[in-house]
Amino acid sequence: MPSSVHERHPPAPVVRERRRAASSWEHSRDDAAYQEVFEAGWFIVPEAQGRGAGSAALTLLIDDARAHADGRRLLTAFPDENNAPSNALCRNTGFTLTGQRADVFRAATLMMNEWVFDLQS
């Protein structure tokens, strides 16, 4: 299992619908590439799915990551390989699929797609 160092930042832009959060982000170190990156993670509550909340939140998050890049070039995301909506969100927002990786979460092995967004593009 890859190791990461996580440091939470102040709250990132959040799109709210009926007072529920739609996104979050954190800073982590990509040990494989030895570079500092941002990692995006999100959830969309069922009643907000398919209504643009994810696209709006990820667009705000990209803008915020660019504004606070501090030398970081990449924003990464790791949705489950079978999570079609989250993978489509990455693809439609300009991320590039770079591969897959396995990780253990709560004693279960998850297969995730690895998406990368170049903050300098």
Rank of each mutant, 00 (worst) to 15 (best):
L74E: 11
R106W: 08
R101C: 08
F43C: 07
Q49V: 08
W42M: 14
V116F: 14
N83A: 01
I44A: 03
D80T: 09
P11N: 08
R19Y: 03
F38H: 11
S24A: 08
D64V: 00
R8M: 05
A107D: 15
W115E: 11
G54C: 06
L119C: 02
P2W: 07
P79V: 06
A67F: 01
R18G: 14
T59R: 14
I62N: 02
A67H: 01
D64H: 01
R106T: 10
A32S: 10
A108C: 04
L97G: 05
N82C: 13
S24N: 03
N113I: 11
P79C: 06
G94L: 01
F95L: 07
S4M: 14
C90S: 05
Q35G: 10
T109E: 15
T76Y: 08
T76H: 07
E39R: 12
F43R: 14
P10N: 04
P85K: 02
A40Y: 02
H68P: 07
V37E: 09
E7A: 07
R72M: 01
D63E: 14
S55N: 04
R72Y: 02
A40S: 05
R29I: 14
A56N: 01
M112Y: 04
R73E: 09
P46S: 03
P46V: 00
D31F: 06
N113T: 10
D70A: 15
F38W: 14
A57P: 00
S23Y: 00
G41M: 02
G50P: 15
P46W: 01
A69Y: 03
V45N: 11
V116E: 14
L110S: 12
F38N: 01
R66I: 02
F78E: 07
T109N: 13
Q120A: 14
E47R: 10
T96W: 04
W115K: 10
L97D: 07
S3D: 10
T98I: 15
A84C: 02
L119S: 07
F38P: 01
Y34K: 12
V45T: 14
H9G: 01
D118H: 06
E47D: 13
T98P: 09
N113E: 07
F105G: 06
E36Q: 10
S121Q: 13
R20M: 06
N87M: 12
R73G: 10
T109P: 11
Q120P: 03
T76N: 13
P10K: 08
F78K: 10
L60M: 07
L74K: 06
R8N: 11
E114Q: 15
S23G: 02
S4D: 08
P11G: 04
S55M: 03
L89I: 12
R106M: 09
P85W: 10
V45D: 14
C90G: 03
D30G: 01
A21N: 09
R8I: 04
M1E: 12
F43P: 00
I62C: 00
E17I: 06
E81D: 15
Q49G: 12
H6V: 15
P79Q: 03
V15G: 07
D30H: 11
P46T: 02
N83M: 02
R91C: 09
A22Q: 11
A108M: 05
Y34N: 15
R20S: 09
Q49K: 12
L119K: 03
R20V: 08
Q120D: 13
R106N: 13
F78W: 09
E36H: 12
R16W: 07
P13C: 02
D64S: 01
D63A: 15
I44R: 00
S4L: 13
Q100N: 10
A65D: 01
